[in-house]
């Protein structure tokens, strides 16, 4: 299915958000997620099923002021 991952359209298998994170090599990474603009807690990722056209944001700690 086609998912917009961090602003980039990607063809990913899923079907869950946790599956997608594993697919892109971030299965065990310290990241936070938002699905279609809403915060998606880590505990919900395995049961959150993606569908075509969804927008997933995956963020990590970064430098800031």
């Amino acid at each position: 299915m086609k998912i917009t991952l961090n602003g980039e359209i990607r063809d990913l298998t899923g079907p869950s958000v946790q599956d997608v994170l594993a697919e892109i090599g971030l299965g065990a990474a310290r990241v936070a997620t938002a699905l279609n603009g809403e915060f998606l807690p880590a505990a919900i990722r395995p049961s959150a099923t993606l569908k075509d056209g969804d927008a997933l944001e995956v963020v990590a700690p970064m430098q800031g002021g």
Binding site: V58, A60, P61, G64
Partner: peptide
């Protein structure tokens, strides 16, 4: 102070670095 950005690979090392500072973290 720290922030969040799209994970492009650098976030994991940065997290270890700031944890090593051993002071309270204020995300923005």
């Amino acid at each position: 102070t720290v922030s969040l950005r799209r994970e492009g690979g650098a976030g994991q090392d940065f997290h270890k670095l700031i944890k090593g500072l051993d002071i309270p973290i204020l995300p923005n």
